[in-house]
């Protein structure tokens, strides 16, 4: 056990259980998970389908709350948070990168990147300034007025990364970010995540692919709702 550091953990899970379904046959998707991720870490969460990694990601991403145990994100306990507080935390502390990009097809690149700022109540001028800055970080400055349908898959995922960055979150949560990309574009996105990590960002990468997981500095492996391996690479 290390001493408790001054800065709060980016993510802290204590004895977390998540049980789906009620009645005679409930399913424990997570069954007593303890996990601490410090600021600046690059962690891959891996495991086969049904291992509980998606459930873990939902908890870490403040999309859901545990059945029992405690989940803290950026120092805030969300175990019993209501939907508005979860929404605020997602807005301020989490940046999502999804496998399917999940850009809004009818908004141009700039407006897609701005989206979290809209819900944070940031003024239009400030939004476009920060969206431009985020776009510069992913090398998409010349595509701000394009729509997602006019971009390649790799470019779409870079837009998604810019959207995840724009709110300066405590944590970037990437869920199979290379799953819909060819290997070159996939490698490109992983390089981008690695460079963000090098710049001090905390990154949690959820993947079933050991090769992708290997890019992280620490790999946490789940099976049947429990952590079976937690090792630095």
């Amino acid at each position: 056990m290390t001493a408790i550091p001054d800065t709060p953990a980016a993510v802290d899970l204590r004895d977390v259980r998540k049980i789906y379904g009620t009645g005679p046959d409930p399913v424990a998707a997570l069954d007593g998970v303890n996990l601490r991720i410090d600021p600046g870490e690059f962690v891959a969460i891996t495991g086969t389908s049904g291992s509980g990694k998606s459930t873990l990601m939902h908890l870490v991403g403040c999309l859901d709350t545990p059945t029992s145990g405690h989940v803290s994100v950026a120092g805030e306990d969300i175990s019993t948070a209501g939907s508005d507080r979860l929404a605020r935390l997602r807005n301020r502390s989490i940046g999502f990168v999804f496998q399917a990009f999940n850009l809004l097809p009818r908004l141009d690149v700039q407006r897609n990147i701005e989206l979290p700022l809209v819900y944070a109540g940031v003024s239009a001028a400030e939004r476009s300034r920060r969206a431009a800055a985020a776009a510069a970080k992913v090398n998409l400055t010349d595509r701000l007025t394009h729509r997602p349908s006019e971009l390649s898959g790799g470019q779409c995922q870079r837009v998604a990364v810019a959207r995840a960055l724009v709110n300066d979150p405590a944590l970037i949560l990437a869920d199979e970010p290379t799953g819909n990309l060819d290997s070159a574009n996939g490698a490109d996105v992983l390089r981008l995540l690695a460079s963000l990590h090098a710049a001090g960002r905390t990154i949690v990468l959820v993947t079933h692919d050991p090769a992708v997981a290997a890019r992280a500095a620490r790999i946490v492996e789940l099976r049947d709702g429990r952590i079976i391996k937690d090792a630095k690479t």
Partner: peptide
Amino acid sequence: VRELGVRLAVGARRRD
């Protein structure tokens, strides 16, 4: 549904 899901994920509250 998906668009609304994305909006919720990036911080839209139910009332938004």
